[in-house]
Nucleic acid binder design. Structure first.
Lengths: 215, 215
DNA sequence: GTATCATATACCGTATACGATCCGAAGCTT
DNA sequence: AAGCTTCGGATCGTATACGGTATATGATAC
């Protein structure tokens, strides 16, 4: 796929991000840089560069001479993230549908297909594929900054999905909505897409809210 | 002001960002890491961490084994940045007005005051103070992610203001709008603020568009 | 005269090593 | 016994050093 050569820091960003999303590294106590670097078989320098990037993404925060901490989850942040997605993602996805090429279409179809398979088999790690699907839909919008912001928001929102929604198991409603959404997207029906994405995010937020008060 | 201790990387982010915004480092050929580090009296490691952060902000891009490049300006990006600000900044500023404390009020007033003085004296470097004023208005909104996104967008938009608008000299219209905006903000008139911010950003974008076609 | 290849140089990217800072435990004082 | 002070270990942050890669220059073949 990607023939482009990526340096170690860039690869570590993805690695460490996945670790944080998986909940492997616990929040609220510092990341041992030496230990993690040794475990990943690299040195501290590229790891620190990766952590610096992740801080900009909002996954970790750094305290001077204290190190990097995984940011803790909060209901307020969940609310904020989803409200931001509601403001940006519908338009971006609709615009992307208008710009999408045949390759983009193929990629979106393939992504939803794998998402379905993963959902059928086991409920674990669905978040990453869910994220990949939504990303495939808004990525061709041709607006690089919007894409980067949305990707960041997707990552942040995935943490909440993993913790609060994923344990509930297969979600037929979301499944259904994904297929409707893809259909409208492939048909380049901008207005319908905008409405569907908006509704889809809102419903996820509602589920999340309900789950959050139940804790 | 800030009693918090910041490590070298964090300070370098601001330093290098200012350099890029000032146009000191030219776009489209790589940043000499060793040279810049030596000039700033630091080593490469914290400089690279700062550059990694600035890449996440969208000011530079990195190519593997080629180094960091200042991202070039484009009319499309300008348009995108301002559209994003229009989607997010009015609501955030209105919300901030509702949450603002007495200290926030004092800070906003002070910021506009210095902006006025700077504008009177010389047209150079107004961008930074303009950015500080707008930031003072949306910062108290209590939504950290929104704030970080808006700050990033401010930085990106400032580049265009510096290049295309600042050379025109003092802008009475913007000046007037700032004072109206602050008045409504201090009065916590959310609806009025929202309208004013929207209009202010749109007008700046219009000026920018006109200037861009004149190149 | 042009194109291609080889060599050299400069630079980036990473590993190793050292100094600075912070947290925790032991000892002392009141 | 409780609180403050001091000391030690551990960890973070930075500087120095080295190997790998890309670009530029010059020579040679066609």
């Amino acid at each position: 796929m990607s023939l482009i050569i990526r340096n170690l820091s860039d690869q570590l960003v993805d690695l460490v991000r996945d670790r944080i999303l998986s909940g492997v590294v616990s929040s609220e106590h510092a990341i041992r840089q030496d230990a993690l670097a040794a475990e990943l078989g690299v040195s501290k320098i590229p790891l620190r560069e990766a952590l610096a990037r992740l801080e900009e993404e909002g996954l970790v925060r750094s305290q001077a001479n204290r190190g990097f901490f995984v940011r803790s989850l909060s209901a307020a942040e969940a609310q904020e993230v989803y409200e931001l997605r509601i403001k940006l993602e519908p338009d971006a996805t609709a615009l992307a549908a208008l710009h999408a090429t045949a390759d983009d279409h193929a990629h979106a179809i393939e992504t939803l297909d794998t998402l379905d398979h993963v959902t059928d088999e086991h409920g674990d790690g669905v978040g990453a594929f869910n994220r990949a699907f939504h990303r495939a839909l808004f990525r061709p919008c041709g607006q690089p900054i919007t894409v980067s912001i949305l990707e960041r928001l997707q990552v942040l929102s995935e943490r909440y999905v993993r913790v609060h929604l994923e344990p509930l198991g297969r979600d037929e409603r979301a499944n259904e909505e994904h297929h409707q959404l893809l259909e409208a997207w492939l048909a380049r029906d901008a207005d319908k897409i905008s409405v569907l994405v908006d509704a889809h995010i809102r419903k996820t937020l509602d589920d999340l809210r309900q789950q959050l008060v139940d804790d």
